[in-house]
């Protein structure tokens, strides 16, 4: 029993230790990187599988932000014109894989809450353009929204998000299961949870 536990530990622990030991996790799920640059880390679900099309994420994409009786609709360009912040956070999936710290860039969730007068800030209901899969929406708590590292990310590792990683915009929050970091975000409802 101990031997078996040790064998499983040694073939997967590299991803948890990180650094130079990361490639030693030879049997961790999603063991190979899908591409390079902004695509150089795995996804739980591709856009195609989630039912997200080019039309959902093209120039007609809009982000609706709702707060205390106020609603603001933003284009991606308008989001990029808001103050941009950086956050070094990994994706850690409940499937049993994780990434290194990635260099996310985008708008703080707290700033978006302030934009619609949701002070505190309260929790937020995040909704996605995805039509299939179990996590088309996710609720984040007030402390997750308030954390300065929590972003609505627009870019990663110095490049725009790719469609599989949630282009035009995705949530990234510290210490949160990967699936709660909603991709292809279309609506943020502050105080709706």
């Amino acid at each position: 029993m101990g031997l078996g536990s040790l064998a499983l530990l040694l073939t997967t622990v590299g991803q948890s230790l990180g650094g130079a030991l990361r490639p030693t996790a030879v049997l961790a799920p999603h063991g190979r990187l899908p591409g390079e640059g902004a695509d150089g880390f795995p996804v739980n679900t591709t856009a195609a599988y989630a039912g997200v099309t080019e039309a959902d994420t093209g120039p007609d994409w809009r982000l609706t932000v709702r707060g205390e009786g106020r609603e603001v609709v933003l284009t991606r360009r308008e989001l990029l014109d808001l103050p941009q912040h950086r956050s070094a956070l990994p994706i850690a999936c409940v499937e049993g894989w994780s990434t290194r710290n990635l260099d996310w860039e985008g708008v703080r969730l707290a700033d978006l809450a302030a934009l619609v007068g949701a002070h505190g800030p309260p929790g937020v209901l995040v909704e996605s353009a995805q039509t299939s899969g179990s996590f088309a929406s996710a609720a984040l708590r007030d402390n997750q929204v308030a954390d300065p590292r929590s972003l609505l990310a627009l870019r990663v590792d110095g490049a725009d998000l790719t469609i599989d990683h949630g282009y035009p915009a995705r949530v990234i929050v510290p210490a949160c299961p990967g699936v709660h970091n909603t991709k292809w975000v279309t609506r943020l409802s502050f105080g709706a949870v």
Partner: peptide, 30 residues
């Protein structure tokens, strides 16, 4: 025993991933 246990745990991926794995992850699982 160690090799057999690894085989048992990762059998679906070692035998070749399902269509769902390929479609969902965008990886070959190869």
């Amino acid at each position: 025993v160690a090799s057999g246990l690894l085989l048992l745990v990762y059998l679906p991926l070692i035998l070749g991933p399902s269509h769902t794995y390929v479609a969902k992850t965008g990886l070959t699982g190869e």
